[in-house]
């Protein structure tokens, strides 16, 4: 069993959320009812630059879609993965090659080899977590809908 705890550290997650400007979403769907579309739409709304990586589409969410990470012409801070787990090692190799800051694997995208490739290549790994949920937990408005954010703090934050 993969020890998922080491890929779900709250401090790492908060650091990744704040250090990221550009997100490449691998496996982003053009169907607006799919989870990946919900996540991409949300991240764009919250000021991230979203770059679709999907060889079957030309444009998603008004952004040019690229066949692979290696085709993306700008630096990528975070690679967000919506693919089957066994696709992860190849994606991790590309993430290392383009010098991405972090590799974020959505719920169920669990592959130990992929995580090891990324880590060895100096890429931070978050696994089996949803990028939209974690953003909404620490930065956004998840608490407005009665979800358990598990946050306990008496620090006064800025306007939402």
């Amino acid at each position: 069993m993969t020890d998922l705890g080491r890929y779900q550290d709250p401090l790492t997650i908060q650091r990744v959320l704040h250090a990221t400007g550009t997100i490449a979403i691998v496996g982003l769907s053009n169907n607006e009812l799919r989870a990946s579309y919900f996540v991409g739409y949300y991240l764009k709304r919250h000021g991230y630059r979203v770059i679709p990586v999907n060889p079957r589409e030309k444009e998603i969410l008004g952004e040019t879609s690229y066949p692979s990470l290696l085709d993306v012409p700008v630096p990528v801070d975070l690679v967000n993965v919506f693919r089957a787990p066994d696709a992860l090692p190849a994606i991790a190799r590309e993430a290392v090659e383009i010098k991405a800051g972090a590799l974020w694997c959505q719920f169920g995208v669990i592959n130990e080899e992929g995580a090891r490739i990324a880590e060895t290549g100096g890429v931070t790994v978050v696994m089996d977590r949803c990028l939209k949920i974690e953003h909404a937990r620490y930065v956004g408005r998840m608490h407005w809908l009665g979800f358990n954010t598990r946050r306990i703090t008496s620090v006064r934050a800025g306007l939402q």
């Binding site: 709250p10 401090l11 650091r15 946050r151 306990i152 006064r156």
Partner: peptide, 19 residues
């Protein structure tokens, strides 16, 4: 940034859900 701490029941009954 918030640490991964398991807060006690009595802390959570006062704080959980509210900032």
């Amino acid at each position: 940034a918030e640490q991964a701490r398991e807060f006690g029941f009595e802390t959570r009954q006062l704080h959980a859900g509210q900032r």
